[in-house]
Design a protein around this nucleic acid. Sequence first.
DNA 1: GAGTGGTCTAGACCACTCA
DNA 2: GAGTGGTCTAGACCACTCA
Lengths: 251, 251
Amino acid sequence: MLKTRGNMKPTANAPAFQPLYRQIKSLITQSLVTGEWRPGEPIPSEIELAGRFSVSQGTVRKAIGELAGENLLVRQQGKGTFVASHSEERSQFPYLRISPDRGALDSLAATLIDCRKVKLDSASAKKLDLASGAGAFLITRVLSISGRNAVYEEVRLPATRFRGLTVETIERHHCMLYSMYESEFEVRILHVDEQIKAVAAEGAATRHLGITKGAPLLTIERVAYTYADKPVELRRSFCNTREHHYRNRIV
Amino acid sequence: MLKTRGNMKPTANAPAFQPLYRQIKSLITQSLVTGEWRPGEPIPSEIELAGRFSVSQGTVRKAIGELAGENLLVRQQGKGTFVASHSEERSQFPYLRISPDRGALDSLAATLIDCRKVKLDSASAKKLDLASGAGAFLITRVLSISGRNAVYEEVRLPATRFRGLTVETIERHHCMLYSMYESEFEVRILHVDEQIKAVAAEGAATRHLGITKGAPLLTIERVAYTYADKPVELRRSFCNTREHHYRNRIV
DNA sequence: GAGTGGTCTAGACCACTCA
DNA sequence: GAGTGGTCTAGACCACTCA
């Protein structure tokens, strides 16, 4: 079917050789992007895919293995392979790196403050790959971690991708944004980049976290990406680290 | 040889089944821990290992693949498989997450301030799995990133593992600590855990970074681990984030 | 051209899930 | 017991490195 094995017309300074399993990987990714298989649903079995693509099960396995490594698919022995979903992950908040200093993260609650339409300033627009002045939703909320108000967040979403977003939509999902993006807007977050700084508290953050102006505050500026490294969310978090911290493991 | 295939005496509430390739992985790891193969050196070829362990090349490949995924081994097509080494990694500072806000990280210099013996307080000792009052080396230094003094660090190392450490040893390695641990003390850092907070600047950090007392400062408390999740370094970094930030990608 | 890791196959069998 | 993913093999051939 595809099967163009080995070296395929190497262009001037280009990569050339693409192994078969990577071509299969691309085909599977396509089906994920187009929504042929949706978050939470099983994809066809390895044997069925091998038949469909006219390759061996081992080649399909290798393609699926890489996609599972990238957290796009989840394999379950005996059951099947499923499209990863933010509504089903063991951690409801896989990208939340704030933990209490003592004890485990035993509870997490989000309080929505506001959701309204704004125009993006040029810096924000650039980070979202949009033109300056483009329309966006601005969501503000407070996260309470283990019973303490610890984080104040401003989330910006491109108006075009999130058309029709309302306070009710957000609250229906109990403020679990990435799960909401997925099920309501077919926007699947695949990875996030964060830049972290220590700043002196001011403005809305002081009010909502109940801290004094000038107190040290951790800021996290996040850009969240979907398929093809397309940025689809901009988030600025202000975190009171008196009793919490940002945790990270590097291997 | 080992070859006890399939389910091997499942104990009461225990994991049971260990696939062959994981046994091979353990054997290879053993050779890394004991130093049979040393950082930077090649390990035997897949075919040779397959013969030695009486398994197929595919099984060896799977074991090596996991170890490469954990950054313990590095594969190079056509050349061989090598023991990963901090002296050879593409980035000389794989665990340094501080970047300048504008422009790339174009230069990095460390200035050693001091290295002396201290006794560990109980909190530090606990993090290093040692008894309170245990001897340690305390290294203090300043990192200059793209020409700006951005980080002041205090590094604590257990005296027993780092016997004979001197200022000269550190300077001989141009302050590249993890490379020094590896080549001088056979201590290989495999992963680090970090806790990050925003605090008000005080003490030595204000002096060495030239900032005023009370200014917001990012602190990174790091525990670095070697084989078997054994902690071997404790590091507290104080980072001026006026023109720099801590970057993180979460997938 | 010899030696390395990388890909791919076909086939056997295993562990696990679920009805 | 049927169906899934997981392991393992033996063997063929490919891409890459280095002398």
